[in-house]
């Protein structure tokens, strides 16, 4: 298939259909510490791949879940959050979502509602968590209950990318949940998509014209 996004191997999202691959996305406002969390979790493995055309950063990670090896792609926003909205392909085929806010800035907490709403438009059922970052700035915040997560039935993690508190635990939990979700997807949309893709395959082969912004070609839209 010449000419479509397959020419950018990083963005070939079909690979996320393979059993041993999961895609985990990060959401949250500018400067809440999303990249710093990735860096703390990955340590020496930390090799961000900047795809600046798409305002996107990818991190690859190999994890063990049970006795299986899982390849994890973390998707980070690289400034796309500025538009208060992400491109649909960002959500496409994601298996879990990490939503981050900064405990020192109320607005980043309030904006979780917007991020969560958009996430659920595209991925109604994938596992998601709320991360309260920068607790090292003032440990007292851990005595406060941030109700947003609770109301939506999402686990809340108090973390610090600086001193490392609960960072690894949070990521390991989310990788595990992503794998579980993948093995047993409850998203009706996933099944519909699967059906549509199988159905569309032949048609797609014929008219695989490069889309204007490339990314879109991978995400069939359902109106």
């Amino acid at each position: 298939m010449a000419g479509d996004v397959d020419s950018i191997p990083e963005l070939d999202q079909k690979k996320y259909d393979a059993d041993e691959q999961v895609k985990i996305i990060c959401l949250g406002d500018s400067a809440v510490g999303k990249s710093k969390l990735m860096e703390r979790f990955l340590m020496d493995e930390y090799r961000p791949q900047q795809l600046s055309t798409y305002a996107l950063t990818l991190y690859k990670h190999t994890a063990s879940v049970g006795n299986k090896t899982v390849l994890v792609d973390f998707w980070d926003t690289a400034g796309q959050e500025r538009f208060q909205s992400m491109h649909p392909s960002y959500y496409h085929k994601a298996h879990a979502c990490i939503m981050v806010f900064d405990v020192q800035r109320k607005i980043t907490y309030k904006n979780l509602a917007t991020w969560y709403k958009e996430l659920r438009e595209f991925r109604p059922e994938i596992p998601c968590c709320v991360v309260a970052n920068k607790i090292d700035a003032d440990l007292k915040v851990t005595q406060r209950s941030f109700n947003f997560g609770k109301k939506q039935g999402l686990p809340l993690y108090y973390v610090s990318a600086a001193d490392g508190t609960n960072v690894v635990k949070m990521f390991r939990d989310m990788i595990k949940r992503a794998v579980e979700y993948k093995q047993n997807p409850s998203d009706f949309m996933d099944e519909v998509m699967q059906e549509l893709e199988n159905f569309d395959l032949e048609k797609k082969e014929e008219n695989s014209e490069p889309d204007e912004d490339g990314l879109k070609a991978e995400s069939p839209e359902l109106d």
Partner: peptide, 23 residues
Amino acid sequence: LEMDFTKTMQDKCSWDEESDDGF
């Protein structure tokens, strides 16, 4: 590095007070 904060007494967060949608 893990720390369990769920057992500590939790106060209501003032950020939740003006209860707009979802908070």
